[in-house]
């Protein structure tokens, strides 16, 4: 049943590793299903012929670095009804934003900024990398004109569902308590800590998190841990202040 015409889609990449774009193509069966609902007009990684907007939906990964990328980003906003930022880089600044904490004379480049700091965005599909399943579920909701939603509990909830041994309880660091779930606690399932790639929950308490980490790692390490994927405390402040 297809009561609606296909929606038009642009998939854009700014500066980043392009891992999220690869994730889109990871399962070709799913991608070809998506093509029944979306007309992909612009996708440099996936096709030869790319058209300019306007589009119903645009996906953007990465962070803007060059002047051209800033221009492109503003152009995307102007010509897209819905802009979805995908992946930790676009959402939080990404690994490259480690640069922001270096002494200024060590780097000639300007600070890395996340996309929501430059343009208004409509939705976030978080993660490093994203999960194509989550992204496609978002796109299907949008196709049917339903507002997509993100998981609203911390990673710990899913981690308990997966019956893992809690790392914090074993005296190892983990950012699960303040990080938005929805990843099925995949890192902890594999024995790794949660480093917060999906950003903070609405009710995240960073001060509390630092206090809990204090006996486990140094303050410096805990700050590093909380900024690996970008400064998610800043992002959280911006987001929750706007909400109020």
């Amino acid at each position: 049943m297809k009561p609606y015409p296909k929606k038009t889609l642009g998939i854009y990449s700014l500066t980043c590793c392009e891992g999220c774009q690869f994730e889109i193509l990871k399962d070709y069966d799913d991608f070809s299903q998506l093509l029944k609902y979306y007309d992909v007009r612009n996708f440099r990684l996936g096709q030869e012929e790319n058209l300019p907007g306007p589009f119903d939906v645009s996906l953007v990964e990465g962070t803007p670095e060059s002047k051209e990328e800033y221009t492109l980003l503003r152009e995307i906003r102007k010509t897209s009804a819905i802009v979805i930022v995908i992946g930790s880089c676009a959402h939080l600044g990404g690994i490259q934003s480690e640069r922001n904490s270096l002494p200024k004379k060590m780097t000639l480049a300007k600070d890395v900024v996340s996309i929501p700091e430059v343009i208004n965005t409509d939705f976030i599909v978080p993660g490093c990398p994203i999960s194509h399943k989550e992204l496609f579920a978002f796109l299907m909701d949008i196709y049917w004109n339903k507002v997509p939603t993100l998981h609203d509990l911390a990673v710990c909830f899913e981690c308990r569902q997966n019956e893992n041994q809690c790392l914090l309880k074993e005296g190892k660091p983990c950012l699960g308590p303040i990080t938005r779930g929805g990843c099925d606690s995949i890192c902890v399932n594999g024995g790794e800590a949660c480093y917060g790639c999906r950003g903070a929950t609405d009710q995240a308490d960073f001060a509390k998190m630092k206090e809990i980490l204090k006996p486990i790692i140094s303050d410096e390490d805990s700050t590093n841990m909380m900024t690996i994927y970008g400064d998610y405390e800043c992002e959280w402040k911006r987001r929750t202040d706007e909400g109020k």
């Binding site: 799913d30 299903q33 998506l34 496609f136 579920a137 299907m140 909701d141 196709y143 049917w144 339903k146 509990l153 911390a154 990673v155 710990c156 909830f157 981690c159 308990r160 569902q161 699960g176 308590p177 303040i178 929950t201 009710q203 995240a204 308490d205 509390k208 998190m209």
Partner: peptide, 24 residues
Amino acid sequence: FGCGACTAVCPLCFCFRQEYKNNI
């Protein structure tokens, strides 16, 4: 933290929500 871990493991927390999934 308001993380909800306690509600996940409690035998007497039984709240659920309906999730409408639009499949690919």
